[in-house]
Design a protein around this nucleic acid. Structure first.
Lengths: 156, 156
DNA sequence: ACCATTTAGTGGCATATGCATCTTTATCGA
DNA sequence: TCGATAAAGATGCATATGCCACTAAATGGT
C-alpha cells in the first residue's frame, strides 16, 4: 500500500464527489437537470407528498438549504409547495404532472449512468460502497462521532 | 441485506459528504475556516507554490471553481497569487505567513476531527475507504467510465 | 384560556463549484 | 516571422448548501 497522500477522509470524499458528480451530471445533461435535482424529484416521489422537513432529513440536508435548492424546481414548474391543512406551518412538496414527466426522463438517463458506474466499478462493489456511504450518512454515525465512541455496527 | 433504498451511488456519496462535512466543519469552526478551506491551504503547502491549474488538478476541481474558492482566502490574506515569471499566463499560489499560521491552527483542529473519525469508523476501515474514494476520484476511473469499460485495478 | 417553548419554514448572507465566454500568452507549423 | 491554435486564468451566471435571525403556528403546562 502506497503512503496515504491525502489522509483526510473528508477531503477524499469531496474529491470523489466532484468526479462522480461530473459524470452523472454529464449523463443527465440532455434533460436540463442536474443529478442533485433528479435526486430531489426521485426522493419526493418516493416519499409521496412529504413535508420539506421530511425531505431534508432523508437527504441529510439542512432545511434551509433544501428550501434554496427547491426554488429552481418550483420556478420551472416541476414541484408545488402546498400548505398542509393540519399543520399550517408545514408545506408539502408535490410533484406536478410536468415534474413526473421530467422525472421519468431523468430516471432513464440516470439509469444509464448508474449502469455505467456499476459496469466500471463492479456491481457488487458498488452496492458495498453505497452501504458504507449510507452508514457514514446515518444519524447513528453522527451520534457516535459526536460522542467520540466507536460505531456499533448493527447487522445489515 | 436490506433492500437498497437509495440505489444511486452519486446520491449516497453526496449524503455522506454532507454529514461528514458538517462534522469536520464543526471541528474547524474555532479557526473560522471551513474544512474545504483548510484542505485548500494544506494542498497549497504540500505542492509548494503551485499554479492554480496544478491545485485544481490535484483537488479534482474545475479551474474556475478553484478561482472562486480561493478568493475569500486571498481577501483574508492567507494566500497571494503571484504571476509566474516564465509563463505570464500562470499565477502561482503562495501561502503568506498569516496563511501558514492559520494552517498550523486548522491542522491541529483537523487532526482532532480525523482522529475522532478513525476512532468512530475504525482506522483500518478509514484507510480502506480513502483508498476507494481516491480510486473514484482518479483520472483512471473517469477514463474507464467514459469508455464504458471495467476499471483495470493496478496493484496498490 | 394564556404564556413559554418548540417546530416548520423563509430570507439574507457566505462559501462551494461548474459552465460558457473572453483576454492574454505561449506554442507550433508553414 | 506570422498566423492559427492551445493553454491559463478571469468573469458572469446558476445551482448547491449551511448558518443565523425572524415569523407564524402548534404544543404543553398551569
Amino acid at each position: 500500500m502506497k503512503p496515504d497522500l491525502s489522509p483526510c477522509s473528508n477531503a477524499a470524499l469531496r474529491q470523489a464527489m466532484r468526479r462522480l458528480g461530473q459524470l452523472y451530471d454529464d449523463a443527465l445533461a440532455p434533460s436540463g437537470l442536474r443529478a442533485t435535482q433528479h435526486g430531489l424529484l426521485a426522493t419526493i416521489e418516493a416519499l409521496g407528498t412529504p413535508t420539506m422537513g421530511a425531505v431534508a432529513e432523508r437527504l441529510v440536508m439542512d432545511l434551509s438549504g433544501l428550501g434554496h435548492t427547491l426554488k429552481p424546481l418550483a420556478r420551472d414548474g416541476f414541484i408545488l409547495l402546498v400548505p398542509d391543512a393540519q399543520d399550517r406551518r408545514a408545506r408539502r412538496v408535490t410533484l406536478t404532472e410536468l415534474g413526473r414527466t421530467k422525472l421519468a426522463e431523468t430516471t432513464r438517463l440516470w439509469r444509464g449512468a448508474q449502469d455505467r458506474f456499476e459496469a466500471t466499478f463492479g456491481t457488487e462493489r458498488a452496492a458495498e460502497l453505497r452501504s458504507v456511504l449510507r452508514l457514514l450518512a446515518s444519524q447513528d454515525f453522527h451520534d457516535a462521532f459526536v460522542a467520540g465512541r466507536p460505531l456499533a455496527e448493527n447487522a445489515d
